[in-house]
Amino acid sequence: MSDEKEMQVTENLANMEAEQIDEEVKSNPEAPEDHDDDDDDDNVEDPVKKEKAIGKKIVPGILYLGHIPPRLRPSHVRTMLGAYGEIGRIFLQPEDKIVKRKKKKAGSRARNFTEGWVEFRDKRVAKRVAASLHNTPVGLKKRSRFSDDLWCIKYLHKFFWCHLSERLAYEQTVRQQRLRTEISQAKRETNFYLANVEKSQKLDKLRKKKEKRGESMTEKTWDFTQRRTEDEIRQSRLRKQAMSKKSLQKAQEKARVIEEKAQSNVSLLAKIFNSSTERS
Rank of each mutant, 00 (worst) to 15 (best):
R207W: 01
R128L: 15
K246H: 13
E215I: 03
Q201D: 07
A110I: 12
T229I: 11
V257G: 05
E4C: 08
P69W: 04
S216W: 09
S184W: 05
I258W: 06
A14S: 12
E166L: 01
S247V: 13
R239V: 04
M80C: 04
S276K: 15
D231I: 12
M16L: 15
L150M: 08
G66D: 06
R124W: 10
L238W: 14
S184Q: 07
E278Y: 07
Q177R: 07
V9N: 04
R256E: 12
E23K: 10
N265A: 15
W222Y: 12
Q201Y: 12
E259D: 15
Q93K: 03
Q176I: 13
R121I: 10
C162L: 11
M243G: 11
L140K: 07
T79H: 01
F224A: 01
F273C: 08
D38V: 11
S275T: 11
A53R: 13
S264P: 03
R239G: 03
K50M: 10
S144R: 04
W151S: 00
H134Y: 00
Q172R: 02
K141R: 02
T229K: 03
A110M: 07
I21H: 14
K103Q: 10
W222G: 06
K246V: 11
E278W: 05
D34C: 08
H134C: 00
W117H: 14
S132C: 04
K5G: 05
L164I: 05
R234L: 09
Y64K: 00
N274W: 09
M243C: 10
S108V: 08
V129P: 00
G61A: 11
E232P: 05
R78T: 13
H134D: 04
I87R: 02
L238F: 10
G116F: 03
L164A: 04
K202C: 02
N43M: 15
H134R: 00
D36F: 06
H157M: 10
